[in-house]
Simulated assay, not measured.
Amino acid sequence: MKEQLSDSSLLGFLETQLPEADWDNARLRPLPVAYTCRFWRLDVPGRSYVIKEFFPEAEDNPLFPTLPRQEADALAVLSRHQLSPELEAFAVSPAGTPVLVYGYPSPEHNEIDVSEAAALIGRFAALKEPGQGHQTVPAGYHEVLSRGDAMLAAIPQSRKAANLKRLRPQDNAVEQKPVERSLVHRSFCLGTILATGEGARLIDWQFAGLGDPVEDIVGFVSPGLATLYGLHPLVAHAEDMFLQAYPVQQTVQRFLEERVGYHWCFAAYCLFRHETLMTSNAPAARAYGRALEEEVDLMLRLRAR
């Protein structure tokens, strides 16, 4: 970024964007920085806001491009169905970067259990209202394997890539079928569920796309994704509870048949990021390396069953 967005300039900017009258009692504090954006939380009496400043050039990604406008479009639709917080603002910051603000009634507690998470993503999967302008993403066992192949082909000198290729599931292990695409979240985990005063809501829609709801089940049980969000992977009992509580058991059955393809593709993505970020962002590269190890360990456990 050409200019660092300071807390004071951000607060002045928010005063022009939000319909709050009691700015004297407003409290702005930074939250942990993610790989593609910075976060703040703004608290005023009875209401909370999260502010996301998107870093530039994060759109160029082989599996998870960061698309700020897409997140704004998703929030505008999904908040009407009590699936996401309300979109409060989407504008250009004083530093020239995209800034998105969502708001919600302040919660009394922040606990989310796996059954509540399953019900929330199940309601989202059943939603028929389409979002505007969403990308088309790999969907189904065979498409995700092909995307994983492409990412490994982009790092031909990687010795770890050669090892990961040996774990690649066989194409003929799952019958190829057409996929009925719908909007999927794609980074669904306990780290992307927000407790609000009106119940649980889904956040982080910048990676969403038209795909298969199976991917959101995979995300929730993925130990690699949990690791990237700074969470502990789900224990087996919690995974079982989530799958039992998911409203459409036909989707769960397809997940059980196809999950290894999605896990392998995500492992390929983690390896691609690990290799390509080594010189530009070593901490992020190490985080993706840990996520890769988690996904590989899971695939080995699944293979041993």
Results as ranks from 00 to 15, higher is better:
residue 6 S to P: 09
residue 7 D to P: 02
residue 11 L to D: 05
residue 13 F to Y: 08
residue 26 A to K: 04
residue 26 A to N: 02
residue 30 P to M: 02
residue 31 L to Q: 15
residue 31 L to D: 14
residue 32 P to W: 03
residue 41 R to N: 08
residue 46 G to I: 07
residue 48 S to R: 02
residue 49 Y to R: 01
residue 51 I to E: 01
residue 51 I to P: 01
residue 51 I to M: 03
residue 64 F to K: 02
residue 70 Q to M: 10
residue 79 S to L: 03
residue 80 R to L: 12
residue 81 H to F: 15
residue 82 Q to R: 13
residue 85 P to Y: 07
residue 86 E to G: 05
residue 90 F to H: 15
residue 92 V to R: 14
residue 108 E to P: 01
residue 110 N to I: 11
residue 111 E to K: 11
residue 113 D to E: 13
residue 117 A to Q: 05
residue 118 A to Y: 04
residue 121 I to V: 14
residue 122 G to H: 05
residue 123 R to N: 12
residue 128 K to W: 05
residue 130 P to A: 05
residue 131 G to M: 09
residue 135 Q to I: 05
residue 143 E to G: 04
residue 146 S to Y: 09
residue 148 G to C: 09
residue 166 R to L: 14
residue 171 D to A: 15
residue 176 Q to W: 06
residue 178 P to T: 10
residue 184 V to H: 00
residue 191 G to Q: 08
residue 192 T to D: 03
residue 194 L to M: 15
residue 195 A to Y: 06
residue 202 L to C: 14
residue 202 L to P: 01
residue 204 D to P: 07
residue 217 I to Q: 01
residue 220 F to A: 03
residue 223 P to I: 04
residue 232 H to Q: 09
residue 237 H to L: 12
residue 237 H to E: 15
residue 237 H to Y: 12
residue 240 D to T: 09
residue 243 L to T: 11
residue 244 Q to R: 15
residue 246 Y to L: 07
residue 247 P to C: 06
residue 250 Q to N: 15
residue 250 Q to L: 14
residue 253 Q to N: 12
residue 254 R to G: 01
residue 258 E to D: 11
residue 260 V to W: 00
residue 261 G to P: 07
residue 261 G to K: 03
residue 279 T to V: 10
residue 281 N to R: 15
residue 287 A to P: 02
residue 292 L to G: 00
residue 298 L to K: 03
residue 300 L to I: 11
